[in-house]
């Protein structure tokens, strides 16, 4: 039988620190058959060197400020209930505009699709249902996996941006996959189709994420 160890939330930070130091080392066991994508060290290290060089350039300062500002806008979308509810800090999804813990004791489950008789798709359909308080839905409705829970909830802009730059957090080979994800992932797109909508349109949201990365993926100050 497959045994999954649930990674503690702090793992992300430990791994993140180690990555920045240029060493790939994961102190945590992963499922035997789980694929761990390699960390793109080139990106992180090169970026760090570039930034040091550019410290005194006004242009660079402006670019960095714009990068941070773009992230600040995108952050509002990431932390909006339509997005954050499925990126909770615990193992239960959140629901509603107040991001309360999903009723009925729903759990993430190892694959992010729920547990036993409480799988997400048992209630959430292939499309949103019309009618008050009926579950929204899309074919791929799920949470991040237990192995890589991609927690948004409780993160400051800086912490979240650090996460996005860490392939252990995102599971993406490089940060440009993040753009592809927010631009084309059906579940992301779907978040802009029901209930209280995120503060940016999907198009503007993608543009801000792109701008953040194109302008250096600067970490916000806080």
């Amino acid at each position: 039988m497959k045994k999954i160890r649930y990674a503690p939330a702090s793992r992300v930070w430990i791994t993140g620190t180690i990555v920045a130091a240029g060493i790939v080392f994961s102190p945590f066991a992963f499922p035997e058959n789980a694929v761990q994508e390699p960390v793109n060290l080139a990106f992180t290290l090169a970026d760090t060197i570039d930034r040091t060089k550019a410290q005194n350039s006004n242009e660079e300062k402006k670019r960095a400020a714009e990068s941070k500002a773009a992230f600040a806008d995108a952050y509002k979308v990431f932390m909006h209930p339509r997005c954050m509810n499925c990126h909770p800090s615990g193992d239960a999804p959140l629901q509603g505009d107040k991001s309360t813990i999903h009723t009925m004791n729903v759990q993430r489950g190892p694959d992010g699709k729920g547990l036993f008789a409480m799988k997400c798709k048992n209630c959430h359909q292939d499309a949103n249902l019309e009618g008050e308080h009926l579950p929204p839905g899309i074919e791929t409705w799920h949470l991040p996996t237990a192995q890589r829970p991609m927690v948004f909830q409780g993160k400051t802009p800086r912490q979240l941006a650090m996460g996005f730059k860490d392939s252990a957090f995102t599971g993406f080979k490089d940060i440009h996959r993040l753009v592809e994800h927010v631009e084309t992932d059906h579940l992301v797109l779907h978040s802009f189709t029901y209930g209280t909508r995120p503060p940016l349109s999907h198009k503007d949201f993608v543009a801000r994420v792109k701008e953040w990365i194109d302008k250096g993926a600067e970490l916000p100050d806080k």
Partner: peptide, 15 residues
């Protein structure tokens, strides 16, 4: 889960 724990039962049956 052939041998469910109380926690498994909570997770499966609270719906």
């Amino acid at each position: 889960q052939p041998q469910p724990t109380d926690n498994d039962i909570d997770n499966a049956m609270a719906g």
